[in-house]
Amino acid sequence: MLRNRIGDAFAQIDEQLKQRYDLIFNLVEIARGYMVHERTTLEELANARNAAQTATQTAAQNPVDATALTAMAHAEGALAGILGRFFAIAETYPDLKANQNMMQLSAELTTTENEVAFSQQAFNESVMDFNAEAQSFPAVLFAKLLGFHRAALLQPLEAGAEQKTPVIPL
């Protein structure tokens, strides 16, 4: 039952991330017409989106696999870093910044990011409940025999650059 809750909780994350990937795809398509000189950034963003989507699909197959969750967190972190750079560059294009579709997609992406964070918290709570139950008596006697192993927590989906203290040039 608790293992099923982990799967259900991950399914919520998966659903939110699918929505996020669709929004990012649409952002890239809108920006493509405005940011003709930023082709490399748009390609990096599209590639990072695809890599994150693949990592999420892999993790969805076994949401208690620590290796898959770590790969997903790294892919999502890379995507977040490139997405941040994309928005910084987009700020230099006034027509793009004023585009109604771009503003709407940006707002939807912000909402989706919040929903991903809430879904991640619910997933981690399910994992903690599962791990606590597997370590309690009498379950601890049978857990390993029945193939139940400690489930991994999902680490924050942040870019490596966001985890470091920013350096402000003088």
Rank of each mutant, 00 (worst) to 15 (best):
M1Q: 09
M1F: 10
R3I: 05
R3M: 07
R3N: 11
N4T: 08
R5A: 13
I6Q: 00
D8G: 12
A11C: 01
D14P: 01
E15W: 10
Q16T: 02
Q16L: 01
Q19R: 15
Y21F: 12
D22W: 02
I24F: 02
F25E: 00
E29Q: 14
E29P: 00
I30N: 00
I30P: 00
R32L: 03
G33I: 11
H37R: 15
R39I: 06
T40W: 04
E43R: 14
E44V: 06
E44F: 06
E44W: 06
L45R: 13
A48K: 15
A51K: 13
A51F: 06
A52N: 05
A52H: 01
T54S: 12
T54F: 12
T56W: 00
T56G: 01
T56I: 05
T58H: 14
T58L: 14
A59Y: 03
A60I: 03
P63H: 07
V64I: 14
A66W: 00
T67V: 13
T70F: 04
T70Y: 03
A71K: 12
A71G: 11
A71M: 11
A73F: 02
G77W: 05
L79I: 07
A88M: 14
I89A: 08
I89G: 03
A90P: 04
T92A: 13
T92R: 15
T92C: 07
P94A: 14
P94M: 15
K97Q: 15
K97G: 09
A98F: 04
A98H: 07
N99G: 06
Q100G: 02
N101P: 01
M102D: 07
M103W: 00
Q104D: 12
L105T: 03
L105Q: 04
A107P: 04
A107H: 12
L109Y: 09
T110Y: 08
T110Q: 14
T110P: 04
E115A: 12
V116E: 01
Q120E: 08
F123M: 05
N124F: 09
N124Y: 08
N124D: 10
E125F: 09
E125K: 14
S126I: 04
S126W: 02
M128I: 12
F130I: 05
A132T: 07
P138K: 01
P138I: 03
P138M: 01
A139I: 06
F142W: 11
K144C: 06
G147C: 09
G147E: 08
G147P: 04
L153F: 10
L154E: 01
E158A: 07
G160L: 09
A161F: 07
E162C: 00
Q163K: 14
P166G: 13
V167Y: 11
V167N: 12
P169W: 03
P169Q: 07
